[in-house]
Design a binder for these strands. Structure first.
Length: 505
DNA sequence: CGGGTCGCACCTAAGTGCGACCCGGTGCTTTAGT
């Protein structure tokens, strides 16, 4: 049977979407594959179909619990019951049961952190794994070196499992990030399947504002005028919340905010309401997005710029999944990059902090790396050297690789070298994005060039520098002379509010 | 970098205006012992 035959047999579809078949062919050919497919093209089919053809289980590493639950649920809805998600949602009993029945599953979802569990790893070793999948594989490069170091453990895990056939999936990765992913996964010889990062139905626009007030005003106007639903991205939780209530007071109606500080339940609720069309606007931090499969998002506004082009492309890519015209608008105020610079400066320990910690540890005169770990464990290093949680973790992580107790100076120099290099790399990425903000040439061309690709086709509505017409994205049912009071008092909304109490809570 | 909050000065009272200061994003994990 050919691949189309399997596709129809197991999923009922007659055609593959771009990139799916090429990816699956490589997998069936036994080749480790890194596949860069645009968001919303059904990346999960790329591992699901091979599971059935090979009749062997897949281990899927997923960055978010919600994403894991979501994909597991989608598979179950299809009628496949042999699915398990290894994460903290499982009780001890459930975990034990799942471990004892590991061989019965076809889809085993895990978080990178969970792979630290000896029992899980031992269990997985006994399986004949058909495919080891790393979903949203750019996380390895983006988070592995600081925020979530367990992402760097995937290489050793693969080795431990005997280098199972591997599929890394992502939507946005530069050639440098892709080689980073492949290197960290611990093996050369990955085949790459690449689609374009260009989304021709998303028009690109940057508007420069001369004051914070002007930017706020502009946001209000845009949100009123633009055809929704939409997402507005902010760089701080507080700003997202404040803006959401400001917009609501100005008659935006069905608006909510979303960030990592919300309770898990609340986050799921807001996501669901947005997807079902019960909310028109989300004011969010970068926490919002991964795994949001909403077809008809019409615009994405950035009230503050993200840290790098990859994030920007991911975030605007949540618009126009249905292929219809959508707009991406970035509001820029001189100095906006300062906040991102600040994040970069603070996420890694500084040279001084490292020097302080090292001289303190040196004074304790540990004779082995075990003794060193003991000191790390029992002393309040974070308190003494005012490290935040992530800085502490990176420090511990870097010190773990210390084998030779004799040469603290070398280790110290290595550590400082590492953080300096990381910071410089991040600042460089921020600079690229800033150049893009300030460019007066075609923005689409510049994005594709950043990913070392070519533009697919220049759409009519390309970008502000090519003369896009923002009016084309305004609501069509809006009269030209709008009575302001009518915008504030929307009787339909008020009526719905009366009929559905507590809707806006 | 910029916004929010706090305390203070004003000078005779309730609210304003100013400077100092602080803080900001992304997520996984939590099984021991009475």
């Amino acid at each position: 049977m050919n691949l189309e035959g399997y596709l129809e047999k197991y999923f009922g579809y007659t055609n593959f979407r771009p990139g799916q078949k090429e990816t699956i062919m490589q997998i069936m050919d036994g080749k480790h594959t890194l596949s860069m497919l645009p968001t919303g093209t059904g990346k999960s089919l790329c591992y699901q179909l091979p599971v059935y053809i090979m009749n062997k289980p897949a281990v899927v590493v997923s960055p978010l619990l919600s994403l894991m639950q979501d994909q597991a649920e989608q598979i179950r809805v299809r009628g496949e019951k042999r699915v398990v998600s290894f994460n903290s949602f499982l009780s001890f009993e459930e975990k034990r049961y799942a471990l004892n029945h590991l061989h019965t599953y076809r889809f085993i979802f895990v978080s990178p952190e969970m792979l630290n569990s000896k029992q899980l790893l031992e269990g997985l070793k006994k399986l004949d794994i058909g495919l080891f999948v790393v979903d949203e594989a750019h996380c390895i490069s983006q988070w592995g070196y600081d925020f979530r170091p367990d992402y760097l453990n995937l290489g050793p895990v693969r080795k431990e499992l005997g280098y199972p056939l591997t599929l890394a999936l992502t939507a946005t990765a530069t050639p440098a990030v892709r080689s980073d992913i492949i290197r960290e996964l611990g093996e050369d010889g990955f085949t790459e399947i690449l689609s374009s990062v260009d989304r021709s139905n998303i028009a690109l626009r940057v508007e420069k504002c001369s004051s914070y007030e002007e930017k706020q005003e502009r946001l209000l106007t845009l949100v009123k005028d633009l055809q929704g639903p939409g997402i507005v991205y902010f760089s701080s939780k507080k700003t997202a919340e404040t803006a959401a209530s400001l917009l609501q007071r100005n008659g935006t109606g069905r608006t909510a905010f979303y960030h990592g500080g919300l309770e898990q339940e609340q986050r799921i609720l807001i996501q669901q309401q947005f997807i079902k069309g019960e909310l028109d606007l989300i004011c969010a931090t970068s926490a919002f997005g991964m795994g949001i499969n909403k077809e008809n998002v019409r615009y994405v506004i950035h009230f503050q710029m993200p840290m790098q082009m990859e994030s920007y492309v991911q975030e605007i890519g949540r618009a126009g999944r249905d292929g219809k015209d959508s707009a991406a608008i970035l509001l820029y105020l001189e100095g906006d990059e300062g906040l991102q610079l600040n994040f970069i400066e603070n996420e890694l320990p500084s040279g001084n902090q490292i020097r302080g910690i090292m001289s303190y540890l040196r004074s304790k005169n540990p004779s082995s790396s075990e003794e060193l770990s003991q000191i790390m464990l029992h002393e309040d290093l974070a308190g003494f050297f005012s490290l935040n949680e992530i800085q502490l973790r990176i420090t511990q992580h870097l010190l773990q690789s210390v084998n030779d107790m004799d040469d603290f100076n070398t280790v110290q120099a290595d550590m400082i070298g590492f953080v300096e290099k990381r910071k410089e790399a991040k600042i460089q990425k921020l600079r690229s994005l800033l150049n893009w903000v300030h460019t007066d040439t075609c923005r689409r061309t510049l994005i594709t060039r950043y990913f070392q690709q070519d533009i697919l086709q220049k759409p009519e509505q390309c970008c502000d520098n090519c003369g896009m017409n923002i009016g084309a994205y305004y609501q069509t049912d809006m009269p030209d002379n709008v009575d302001e009071s009518r915008l504030v008092f929307d009787w339909k909304e008020e009526l719905i509010d009366m009929l559905i109490p507590g809707r806006n809570e």
